[in-house]
Design a protein around this nucleic acid. Sequence first.
RNA 1: GCCGCCAUAGUUCAAUGGAUAGAACGGCCGCCUCCUAAGCGGCAGAUACAGGUUCGAUUCCUGUUGGUGGUACCA
Length: 574
Amino acid sequence: MQQTLIELLDARVSAALAAVGCEGAPAVIAPAGRPEFGDYQANGVMGAAKARKMNPRQLASEVLEKLDLAGIASKVEIAGPGFINITLAPEFLAALAHEAMADAKLGVPQPVSQRVVVDYSSPNLAKEMHVGHLRSTIIGDALARVLRFLGHEVIAQNHVGDWGTQFGMLTAYLIEAEQGGEATLALNDLEDFYRRAKQRFDADEAFATHSREYVVKLQGGDAQVNALWQKFLDVSLHHCEAVYEKLGVGLTRADVRGESAYNDDLPVVVADLKAKGLAVESEGAQVVFLEEFSNKEGEAQAYIVQKQDGGYLYATTDLAAVRYRAATLKADRALYVVDARQGLHFQQMFTVSRKAGYAPQGMQLEHVGFGVMLGEDGKPFKTRTGGTVKLAELLEEAEHRAFALVSEKNANMPESERRAIAAAVGIGAVKYADLSKNRNSDYVFSWDSMLAFEGNTAPYLQYAYTRIAGVFRRVEHFDAAAPIVLEEEAERQLALALVRFSEALHSVARETMPHFLCAYLYELSGQFMRFYEACPVLKSEGALRDSRLRLCRLTADTLKTGLGLLGIGVLEAM
RNA sequence: GCCGCCAUAGUUCAAUGGAUAGAACGGCCGCCUCCUAAGCGGCAGAUACAGGUUCGAUUCCUGUUGGUGGUACCA
């Protein structure tokens, strides 16, 4: 299939609209709101009729006469004020399912390929990763996977915080720890390391002076301090990689391009902005005034690119980065998976990038923002004692809880197997709980609802997969090329859900909304569960059995692929 | 102050301007001699408030209330 079902129906209805004198009128195809309205509905007739002062039901019947859905729909009817309800023919759905099974991409059409930079995770290397890094990391990872699946060339950019005055303090403390012979031990817990360094900094004036000197030496390229800094970064990145490994996130060292990578470019950017008349001096700082962000009095908002003391800010670094992504990486599209609170910064940065010509007109710049994680009290998620929750500890807790539940349900299963299931289920539950929500809103993190492992959770989807795996364990032979026959309503609904995979993926890529894929997979799993209850597979016979087994096969493949795109694993048993 | 975002069942979340606002959890009632009940079916339950635009508004506009975030030298 070269297009999604919606695209196909849109083309057909648009053609019919054009045939009755409504050229250019949008067909407005949407999945039907209710089962009795069929599978898809075309809502465009009402608007077209209104614009032409026509009777909408009359126009709908004219459109219907011209509408060619031969071989596609089994029923097309006008309803309500002028809706066109379309029910797809079982044979058509069966054919699409058949095609999907023969295709490595499960029948998902590949759009025109773009080169897409996805900036995500980007932790500060001065400290250990905490829960605040979870959303960027997994949302970005899911988007990167979906874009790659659709044939885009994704360049992941882990824009880590590896620069700034705090690294003077950390390297100074590292050399002390090394002299004390306990550097390895001290670096075991980065959070603690930072705390102790900060305590030294605050309590000991000599150490503070020493730290400041190190900042200067670091910036000046001093070999010894640079080596210490590199060592610290290396340790910190190892901590990150352990978390990525546990999370099943594909980021590697090759994707790391930290803030420090742009150091040399910062004065160049500022000079360029000045030369272009964009940056001007104000109160000793270099500032770009943006009339796009002015208040009612017409006063332009300031966007500072260089401080009074000559230092640079993240605004400058981000401008250098966007220049790099456009000019060197030649990206068609750049996604910034960063906290929604930085929305204003990105809007300003994008505006300056356009004005300065750093990002060409054709390059899409998108801030993929997301809300904060809240505790069950509605306040930012913290430990009982008010500290930040380390990501590594959160994930351990998830596995721990999952292991207890797995053990409860499968007392006789070998421990190693229970551990493997607990890892997939626990981590999957954490990721799914996050990814399944609209990223724009804040969300409440709740162990209880996340690890109840029932309802709309990752384990529900994983369980649907294991049920299918269980069926195939009992199958000795079946005709993998047998025709798919959709007679029962549950079979038809399952097939419909299966062929909608492409719509879900295209929506995710277009809107950068992973929760669309979660909603899709939950719907698919639900349809499968209903099919499983209503249509015996192994107890049926002959062609019917083969057909049902093929539906099972495609469902399993789609679930595995879809969950894989969310970075969630499936299990043969659980 | 100014600018932005948010407000949907008891709770946690959905809903490209479309029909009777969907789920999940919790509550109540059913379904395992039958492919794993981490499942399936049923019942009750919601758009903060007031206007406006529209054939049609949870969605767009205005105002109100209540949250929350950003906002000249952190990121």
